[in-house]
């Protein structure tokens, strides 16, 4: 688990959704998360990473993870620039540990994932392309695919109408606290954890699979779909 003495710098090479840093921080429980621009366009971008590092260090983080965003063009030049930046930062903040992290998704792999998702969407394959009910926002409708959890939970939920093929309406979801959903003519309050275990496919939307992406990405997708 992430300690609270850990900070994160998201290394970007272009436009970044402004909420991203805050979401990653909340999800991972980091002390602070900043965005640092790094790219081919020379010293101005380098300075941005140094500013980000200064902010993270000032927040009291003793360990800083640097991770390139999925949208960053990760190539040899980018990696070299990142290594150089890390050396500089170590010299600048001797008592802070800087650790570069690979997101584990290389550019061609990224492309392959996108392609696969598109293929699945066009084929309308259900398996593996489900999301938890908890990520849906109010007013969205979905179809139950399967239930996760222990037998007792599944049995209880199935009795309430959460069986494959049932249509579920999300009545209320404020992003925290329990949801209100409507299934099989009944209105239910459902804890977030329970809602997460109900795997659904959103009606009327391509079934591209969010599950195969890295965790932060998935969380970001959720954030964007949040009600209010």
């Amino acid at each position: 688990m992430a300690g609270t003495d850990t900070g994160v710098i998201l290394i970007a090479s272009g436009q970044v959704e402004p909420d991203l840093a805050r979401t990653v921080q909340r999800m991972g429980g980091y002390r602070s998360v900043e965005i640092g621009l790094l790219g081919a366009n020379g010293s101005r971008a380098q300075a941005d990473v140094r500013l980000a590092a200064a902010r993270v260090a000032a927040s009291g983080a003793h360990r800083v993870l640097l991770i390139p965003l999925l949208t960053a063009a990760v190539d040899d030049r980018f990696e070299a620039a990142l290594d150089e930046a890390v050396m500089e930062l170590r010299a600048e903040h001797p008592d802070v540990e800087f650790i570069p992290v690979r997101s584990g998704i290389l550019p061609d792999e990224h492309a392959r994932l996108l392609a696969a998702a598109l293929v699945r969407a066009e084929e309308g394959s259900a398996e593996g392309c489900t999301v938890g009910l908890s990520v849906l926002s109010a007013g969205q409708q979905a179809v139950v695919q399967r239930l996760c959890g222990c037998n007792e939970f599944i049995s209880q939920m199935a009795a309430l109408g959460f069986v494959p093929g049932s249509s579920v309406d999300v009545v209320q979801n404020y992003g925290t606290g329990p949801l209100i959903v409507s299934v099989r003519g009944g209105r239910l309050a459902l804890g977030r954890e329970e809602a997460r275990k109900v795997r659904v496919r959103v009606a009327g939307q391509p079934a591209y699979c969010r599950r195969r992406f890295g965790r932060p990405w998935r969380r970001v997708m959720r954030r964007g779909r949040r009600h209010e």
Binding site: A189, G191, E193
Partner: peptide, 11 residues
């Protein structure tokens, strides 16, 4: 320990 919260909201 985690607690499941499933409750009906009657009309």
């Amino acid at each position: 320990e985690h607690i499941a919260f499933i409750m009906e909201l009657p009309l």
